[in-house]
Design a protein around this nucleic acid. Structure first.
Length: 120
DNA sequence: ATAGTGACTGAAC
DNA sequence: GGTTCAGCCACTA
């Protein structure tokens, strides 16, 4: 571990934050979507939505992280340019999610908040 | 160390 | 309804 990196943030080092983000994204059910901000809030860093996006960028090397189910708060596929091979909308459509003009159709209905998994 | 960048967001206009 | 602005914070140059 890089000591210069590990204690930069006294609340949570970035490596642990990334792994938590990946764990949350793994919980998103197929056919549903969530947002960067929702994940950030769930992890207690409500203002770190950008870091969630950054974690997605780093999720390439991680197994079983459905990064295509994470969109911005408007349901827009803001990360579509970061998917090599099968595109983001192809992956979404494959789960039955309709995509129109880079936006998830019925985004409000399909939105999944990570906090939902605490209800049970 | 400083400046610029970005898969973001909420408030302000 | 929009569009713009200012915080946000890890990363890179």
């Amino acid at each position: 571990m890089n000591p210069a990196r590990s204690n930069r943030n006294p609340r949570l080092n970035s490596q642990a934050f990334f792994e938590r983000v990946w764990d949350v994204v793994r919980l998103v059910p197929p056919g549903r979507v969530t947002t960067y901000g929702a994940i950030a809030r769930f992890l207690g860093s409500g203002r770190s939505a950008r870091m969630v996006g950054y974690a997605m960028n780093a999720s390439h090397s991680q197994p079983d992280v459905p990064a295509h189910r994470v969109v911005n708060r408007n349901g827009m596929l803001s990360g579509k340019h970061h998917f090599p091979g099968q595109s983001m909308e192809e992956r979404l459509e494959a789960e039955g999610i309709r995509v129109e003009k880079d936006h998830v159709k019925d985004f409000h209905k399909l939105f999944w908040d990570p906090a939902e998994c605490l209800k049970f």
